[in-house]
Simulated scan of single mutants.
Amino acid sequence: MELEVRHLRVLLAVADAGSVSKAAATLGLSQPSLSAQLRRIETSMGAPLFDRSAEGVAPTAVGRFVLAKARTVLAELDELRSWAGKAGTAAGVTKVQVGSVPGPIAARLALSLQRLYPGEIEVHSLAEQSSFAMLGLLGGRRMDVAVVEEFSGHDLPAVAGVRRAPLVPVEPVFVAVAETHPLAAETVIDLADLAKEPWIVDPLMDSGETAHLRRRCQEAGFEPLIRHHATETSAARGAVSSGLCVSLAQATAREGLGLVIRPLRGDPLVRRLDVAWSETGPVDEPLAREAAVDAYLGLVGANPSYAAWWAAHPEVHPKGKES
């Protein structure tokens, strides 16, 4: 893993809070997600950066050195960004930070903003597994607009300075299998037919997707065989297309490269998509809503199975918009 600026901010948040749980609340992350990030950072650095105890965390000798360097780097970077921002404003260009859950909506949202914004903009996009983290970035003015996801029972928190509006109140979650899989010939797959299949999941997704998968499988009479983990979409697609495992899939994802995407009978898993924006950013409410809807409607035909589902469920369509 390559060390990134966001990792430095994570380290400082943990050091300043003196506790992983307190830092997670500050960053808008779940504690397991932050703990997993911290372990990966320490692995990348090659040494423990914090001593853990019942009272919290304290920097190790290596950690104190890294934290000192991190503060210097971030201070210099903030100064550089401030200068660049002023230069961009002087040239009549507005910088817009866009975020979304991983998937096809990421690029579409950036393109829609580029087309609809009343002026010249420079768009910076980030695909982030954690909707909690994106809300934290929006609240800290390090992101301007984002599409976030929410599963029932894993509600996103209210964040000061951030507003949200429904984009798609109900979107079914589909399943991806190799095109050589026996179930690839089916137009709809029963969840129970996947009882003996190994699954691959993203361990950084903290929206509740994996928890819902477990619950729905248990309701169908079996425990899912979660045997593989991947944080990169390309790695997960490769594993599925090779026949190694199956995975959940976004309904708007495209098929191809050895992989097919099918609906689950009865829509046992669904998610909600919201558009969120910073109250003090360059993207106001009307533009955030219009860009998000425009981006999403450009995706509903990507998967024929979802196009049929969408046509049969007008109640979930954005109000005032046609598909």
Rank of each mutant, 00 (worst) to 15 (best):
A288G: 02
A276V: 07
L287P: 03
V260G: 04
P268R: 00
I261L: 02
A288D: 05
V246A: 14
L273K: 11
A291K: 08
L273D: 01
L273R: 13
R289M: 02
A292V: 04
I261F: 01
A276Y: 08
A302N: 15
V275F: 01
V260R: 12
V293N: 05
G258I: 12
S242I: 13
A291D: 08
E279C: 07
E255R: 11
E285F: 08
R254S: 15
P263F: 06
T280Y: 09
G258H: 10
V270P: 01
V246N: 08
V246M: 09
E255W: 06
C245E: 12
V270F: 04
V246Y: 07
L248S: 09
S247N: 00
G238K: 13
V246C: 12
C245V: 13
G238D: 12
T280N: 13
E255N: 08
S242G: 14
V293H: 08
G243D: 07
V260Q: 06
W277K: 05
L248Y: 09
R289C: 03
S278P: 04
G258F: 07
A251C: 07
V275R: 03
G258S: 11
P263Q: 08
L287N: 06
G298A: 09
V246G: 07
S241E: 14
R289F: 01
A253I: 01
L264R: 00
R272A: 13
L264I: 03
G298P: 09
L269G: 11
R237P: 02
E255Q: 15
S278Y: 07
G243Y: 08
G266R: 01
S241M: 13
L269S: 10
A276M: 10
V270K: 12
L273P: 00
E255P: 03
S241R: 15
P282V: 01
A295L: 10
A291T: 04
Y296H: 15
P282L: 02
L257C: 14
R289K: 12
E290V: 06
R262Y: 05
L257W: 06
I261R: 01
L259C: 08
S247W: 00
T252A: 14
A276Q: 07
L269T: 12
G281M: 05
S241I: 13
E285S: 13
Q250I: 08
D274L: 10
A276P: 04
L264H: 02
A276K: 06
L273G: 01
I261C: 01
V270E: 13
S242L: 15
P268Q: 00
C245M: 14
L248D: 09
G256K: 10
G281T: 01
E285Q: 15
E279W: 03
G298R: 10
V275T: 02
D267M: 04
P282A: 07
S278C: 11
D294M: 03
L244E: 15
A292W: 05
V293Y: 02
S241L: 13
V293F: 02
D267F: 05
G238H: 12
A291I: 04
A295F: 08
V246L: 06
L259W: 06
Y296C: 09
A276F: 10
L248Q: 14
D274C: 00
G238C: 12
E255C: 11
S247K: 00
E290W: 02
G243A: 08
I261K: 00
A253M: 14
L264P: 03
A276E: 06
P282R: 03
A288V: 03
A302L: 15
V283T: 03
